[in-house]
Design a protein around this nucleic acid. Structure first.
Lengths: 201, 201
DNA sequence: AATCTATACGAACGGTCGTATTATTAGTTT
DNA sequence: AAACTAATAATACGACCGTTCGTATAGATT
């Protein structure tokens, strides 16, 4: 069996293909609506072969969350971290987020907003994984804001400002998917701008 | 057959009981997770008898949305409309909303936030019904804000302020359900207060 | 008393779900 | 070339899904 970097290539490629499709499906139909049979049919492989890669549906769901997290990190977080810390990075993070939603990196809009609502009121490993990701994201936003505060570019409670900004993002994402128009993004952009200006010193 | 107000009593009571349970289930597991068999078992009635009341799962889902809308109107909208129009009503609407979420009128938090995300990226009658309800709600908020603007108690674009306030509500609701703590409500209250103060004249 | 209709029931349908077991293929190693 | 192993496939299972059907009951109408 061909190996690269100690990983088996054939199976790993299949895994990647499965997860790439899985995140798209889950962003539209949720992690519950993500069914193994449908996934296998879509990819033209056998249900049992696909199943063998994960061992259980829950493990597939957790792997899908990890895959989505990587895509999210690449699309939203990394580009913002390339900008110098401070207010500029805060702005960039917002632009990246709205672009990430608008450009439908996931066809159903923000993957995590979708599945977080799906599992918010349930128990289990999937819920716990989503709690961790949400906590990570809010901490990241808070830290990015704090850098701007520490530099004297903003005067605000980092947690509070992060809460507000995140609220705008999510409201825009839902409005866009639900109504199929772009007006939510404009409203969010304006809210972000006003909010940052009022916190500017 | 006994009649009251032209309605058949026996069947209507069953319908009500079904829908009362249905909204609770759907707020946790979604309108897709709402299964007829489980609903019937929970209520101690037969699956086929329950099914006969609605004729299809989609019709049950639509009826569940209408039932939830009534509960929402009673818990959130009506109490706010008892306050005089203007800034006081804007504030009251916010308090009612956060209370509605905090007190778990639906055990899974806001019913409409849950199922709107569930059906946001899908087609069909359920999606359309949820679009209408969302539009109704945003229009209501906008009008309540506009009354305050017309009275000179606020200086703001009603649609923009409604967008922001709604964003705070939903962010608080999700944070509360996902993490099981109340801190999101405090953050939302503070954001609402600050936002209204900055729009005060 | 006879008829009609609303309501509810049990049983069954074809499908799909997640999962387990067993077999087959393909690629590497010896 | 043979042996081994990872990857995929074939098949089957029981549980549950939404839905349909035929039937029983009970209250209302005539």
């Amino acid at each position: 069996m061909e190996k690269v970097d100690g990983r088996l290539v054939r199976g790993d490629q299949t895994r990647r293909a499965v997860l790439r499709r899985a995140v798209d499906i889950a962003s539209v139909d949720g992690l519950e609506g993500l069914s193994i049979g449908r996934l296998a049919t879509d990819l033209g492989i056998s249900k049992s072969g696909l199943f063998a890669h994960f061992g259980s549906k829950e493990e597939l769901q957790l792997a899908t969350i990890r895959a989505a997290r990587r895509i999210y990190a690449d699309a939203v977080v990394m580009p913002a971290l390339e900008v110098e810390p401070g207010l500029a990075r805060v702005r960039k993070l917002g632009e990246c987020w709205l672009d990430y939603s608008r450009r439908r990196i996931f066809p159903g809009g923000c993957f995590f907003q979708k599945v977080s609502h799906e599992y918010a009121a349930r128990g289990g490993a999937v819920h716990e994984a989503l709690v961790v990701v949400h906590r990570e994201w809010m901490d990241l936003m808070e830290n990015v804001v704090r850098e701007a505060v520490d530099r004297g570019e903003l005067d605000a409670d980092p947690a509070q400002l992060a809460f507000d900004l995140n609220a705008y993002y999510e409201a825009a994402n839902l409005a866009s998917i639900l109504h199929g128009d772009e007006s939510g993004y404009d409203q969010a952009s304006r809210s972000i701008r006003v909010r940052l200006e009022s916190a500017g010193r």
